[in-house]
Design a binder for these strands. Structure first.
Lengths: 158, 158
DNA sequence: CGTGAAACTTTCAAGAT
DNA sequence: ATCTTGAAAGTTTCACG
């Protein structure tokens, strides 16, 4: 699965579906300059070969009441055997954990967590995070505001 | 714009569109137990009122050749007037910067950056990041692996 | 909110380049 | 090997009840 099998049209399809996940196949075919049938066939190929993984609506977190977001930097307690894998399993099972990144540097993991308010945040820390014995040290950064781009910088050559 | 105008059906629609952004209105109407017409009307309302912001395909970053990802913690040089706003503008203009979070703690910002390889990464640091005079100090964490959940933990009460 | 009908989109098979 | 066409099946969208 590498990018060598993708031609300009495939990259164009990926770019358009990334910026509008609900574009119709007909609109898509018009934009890329093919008829609907081969357009659909290419989209299915991109999905089946794993280039396109899924489609999602992006919701307004604040509008839905998620007003507290933070990153937590975590170091693993190396006294516990197989600590990394156990930690990964436990941390991802927490529904308020929306991202978990294994990283290099002075921390082992960066975890993103969301909650409706500070009381909810406190509850997650006390009842869920602090019960994970594989955690050695943690340090949190509250997110004040964010800019998240919905698409990768795909460049279509030639 | 707050969550008090959303009933159980609205939350159910949001949940389903978050987990499958390309579900048809007909399937959606079947799942929530309404006919297609009022279902579509509710979806349009959720879009127009800003609860649903957009729809996107999620692509496999590695399959598209983006093999280098990192978080960079940045502190702002407070000697420059209006440094925060200038920094935000400049950092978001870099196409390889896919996220920028203003945070509390010892850093001012956490920036997520993607590149195809280490050479590309070096080029971004040398040619783009290091030219932002508002940056005081920076420290990077390479991402080894990630788990990102595509949906918020929406709980439908009652 | 539901029904029904018109307009539009998806999808497939057949044939062209 | 990949494209276009055209037709059937399915979906969206609107007016009306």
């Amino acid at each position: 699965m590498n990018a060598h099998h993708l031609d300009r049209i495939d990259l164009h399809i990926i770019k358009l579906l990334q910026s509008d996940g609900r574009i119709t196949n007909l609109q898509l075919s018009n934009e890329i300059g093919l008829s609907p049938a081969p357009t659909l066939e290419r989209v299915r190929k991109l999905e089946n070969q794993g280039y396109i993984k899924s489609y999602h609506a992006v919701v307004d977190e604040e509008a839905l009441g998620f007003n507290v977001k933070c990153f937590i930097q975590i170091t693993i307690n190396l006294n516990v055997p197989d600590a990394r894998n156990k930690f990964i399993q436990k941390i991802n099972a927490i529904e308020e954990v929306v991202e978990c990144h294994h990283v290099t540097g002075s921390s082992d993991f960066v975890v993103k967590l969301i909650a409706k308010d500070m009381k909810g945040y406190e509850r997650i820390i006390l009842e869920k995070l602090s019960k994970i014995e594989e955690i050695g040290h943690q340090s949190s950064m509250m997110i004040l505001s964010s800019n998240v781009k919905p698409a990768l910088p795909i460049v279509i050559e030639k």
